[in-house]
Design a protein around this nucleic acid. Structure first.
Lengths: 208, 208
DNA sequence: GAGACGACCGATCGATCGATCGGTTGCGAG
DNA sequence: CTCGCAACCGATCGATCGATCGGTCGTCTC
């Protein structure tokens, strides 16, 4: 499945490339239903209808409704972490690394808006032990921003009085993007992402 | 019920005063259950148990589960709007008015964390026409910040390149506070509120 | 062309959901 | 003492939930 096609023509900015998301029908149906109704509000019949399947048709591919949610969240965090690591690896110095990770976070939460939305809103519906595992990857994502802010402060490039709080504010801004940004709105994802990099540089009081 | 007791000794900063929230038992139970499980995940039996009542005991006071949610959201927006108007009325000039409204928003989402949390997360579970009504009050709250930012930019006190976007970012930061702030954490609500006023002044690029 | 198997579906399971019914209790007014 | 009513409760309603059962259909193998 993975590894087919795509000769990876521009690996330099693969983290900025968001091809149309191709999910298996049950996952795509579950994603839509969870976004509109929430995990508990969505029914298996709902999901099956959106997937163009019967109820047993869904259960043929996934053993339970809970597994659908976990699969979506795993897929989300895998993609986000991979992109963030690429984005950071490309940056030179804390300011550039910070800026690219923020841009990546913002782009992801707009181009993968639905995934980002349930990633932020449905964690409480995930049963253990999956919850702890996924929460750990979210912590790792947060720490990636934390580290750059702290390093920037140490080198005098940022002047945030409370680096940790500023980093949390930056991540919060990006993860909240799916709540209001829409592809049919007036602003493109790329424009907003640049704007949010500026916002984030303001929040950490980067030297201008 | 309201209007009893409290001789209003310090009306000057009533919007900064957060006495322990005294909700009717079914509302308090519903609030806890909604926060922990979400609207659809919470059952009437859950709510009744937390309220120390039987199921019909809950229905004696509220006609449906939906009414419990709407009552909580109405109560939330009433309190928040009242406080915000007081906070703004006290300020002199756009900078001070902006700062006070942000402080009010931040304080509310920490001292009334649970209410603020479901206010942000359970809007999609509200049926029409209540949803439109409550959404309108949230728009009014947003506009209150919008207006001050725009006025500040017009007078040259703020230098936000995109005032509307900056205002949305400010509100987003405050409404996300219930997601991570905890009264048992290391920082007091008042400290964080001051910090968030600073963050917000950074976001609108207030002259320092 | 026989057999195995993946990909489904109609029918239905027990459990649980939100909501309701017909009571019982306690208290304040007359 | 009795009436009226607010404040409940045990039992139960029909509907719907997540999940499962046994079966069908097409395709691929040998």
């Amino acid at each position: 499945m993975t590894g087919a096609g795509r000769p990876a023509p521009a690996p330099a900015a693969a983290w900025r490339d968001f091809p149309p998301l191709a999910l298996a029908p049950p996952l795509a149906g579950a994603l839509q239903a969870f976004v509109e109704l929430g995990y508990h509000g969505a029914t298996i019949r709902d999901i099956a209808r959106r997937a163009g399947l019967s109820v047993p048709g869904v259960y043929h591919h996934f053993p339970s409704k809970q597994h659908l949610l976990v699969a979506l969240l795993d897929l989300t965090m895998d993609d986000l972490l991979t992109r963030s690591r690429q984005a950071r690896a490309q940056g030179d110095g804390p300011v550039e690394r910070f800026s690219r990770v923020v841009e990546c976070l913002a782009l992801f939460h707009m181009h993968r808006r639905d995934l980002g939305f349930i990633g932020a809103s449905e964690m409480r519906s995930v049963a253990e032990p999956a919850r702890s595992r996924i929460a750990a990857t979210r912590t790792e994502q947060q720490r990636m921003v934390d580290d750059e802010v702290e390093e920037g402060c140490r080198r005098g490039l940022f002047r945030a009085p409370h680096p940790h709080e500023a980093a949390r504010a930056v991540v919060t801004l990006c993860t909240a993007l799916p709540q209001w940004w829409s592809p049919s709105g007036p602003q493109s994802a790329e424009l907003v992402a640049r704007e949010y990099v500026d916002f984030s540089l303001d929040l950490v009081r980067a030297a201008r």
